[in-house]
């Protein structure tokens, strides 16, 4: 059985969930939203965690193969053929699982390749436009990988009082957290810890050093 079939099955099943979700709100969907739903399904497919995805793919593939095998048995009435088909399907499922794992690894690599440090202006916690792409990438990865977890470490420069800077670091962490949540990331996947001015990356006392220290570091504790 070609791999494409399996992804269609997954896509259609996600579509069903999506349609169900939409209809439960009392709304109907049109062609545009169906297209979006298909996109969603593809995104959701990529979202499977490696282990989960492998298991899921295998079980779904097995089910499908069993159905096919039954049909074949009905048509050809040979048990031998069914067994061969099942074996073939299992091999295919393993290949699919491997491919999904590769996709997952690629997604993880992509997430790792994203910027992990967001910088801020003095006494500000507004996320600057230049960091949105990176944050959107993290958001996509996190919402597609429900087991992934991050810690947002908020930091401030040395100017101002220490405890106020702790609060300022947290405000920055919260700003990033809220941005990610708005993009669909579960709040449970995020923890904010502020270190204020206590852990500078640059020990200098000039504006260039300060700019480096006003930051939120995105730290994955689980991919």
């Amino acid at each position: 059985m070609p791999v494409g079939n399996l992804s269609k099955v997954i896509a259609s099943s996600v579509l069903v969930v999506f349609l169900a979700a939409c209809s439960s709100t009392g709304e109907t969907t049109d062609a545009t939203s169906s297209t979006q739903a298909a996109q969603a399904a593809q995104a959701a497919q990529a979202a499977q965690a490696a282990a989960d995805a492998a298991a899921l793919a295998e079980s779904q593939a097995l089910e499908e193969v069993q159905a096919e095998a039954a049909a074949q048995a009905a048509a050809e009435a040979t048990e031998q053929a069914a067994q061969e088909a099942a074996q073939q399907a299992a091999d295919e499922a393993a290949a699919v699982a491997q491919e999904l794992a590769q996709q997952q690894q690629q997604a993880q690599d992509a997430a790792q390749a994203l910027a992990h440090v967001i910088y801020f202006d003095f006494d500000q916690s507004t996320i600057k436009a230049e960091f949105r792409t990176a944050l959107n990438g993290h958001a996509a990865y996190l919402s597609q990988n429900p087991t992934a977890k991050i810690v947002l470490e908020g930091h401030a420069d040395e100017r101002g009082t220490r405890e106020y800077n702790i609060a300022l670091g947290e405000r920055r962490g919260n700003a990033v957290s809220r941005y990610l949540v708005v993009q669909g990331v579960s709040v449970d996947a995020i923890e904010v810890v502020s270190f204020g001015e206590e852990r500078p990356v640059n020990a200098g006392h000039d504006s260039a050093s300060w700019a480096e220290n006003r930051r939120v570091e995105i730290r994955y504790i689980n991919y």
């Binding site: 709100t25 049109d30 545009t32 939203s33 959701a44 993009q183 669909g184 579960s186």
Partner: peptide
């Protein structure tokens, strides 16, 4: 044109978990 379903605010507030599922299903594609 985007034809995003209008979600009922009351529902969202009373049933958070349901809303969260909906939101992730809806919000991601667009």
């Amino acid at each position: 044109n985007s034809a995003v379903p209008v979600t009922d605010l009351g529902n969202a507030v009373t049933d958070e978990s349901v809303t969260r599922v909906k939101v992730s299903a809806i919000a991601q594609p667009s």
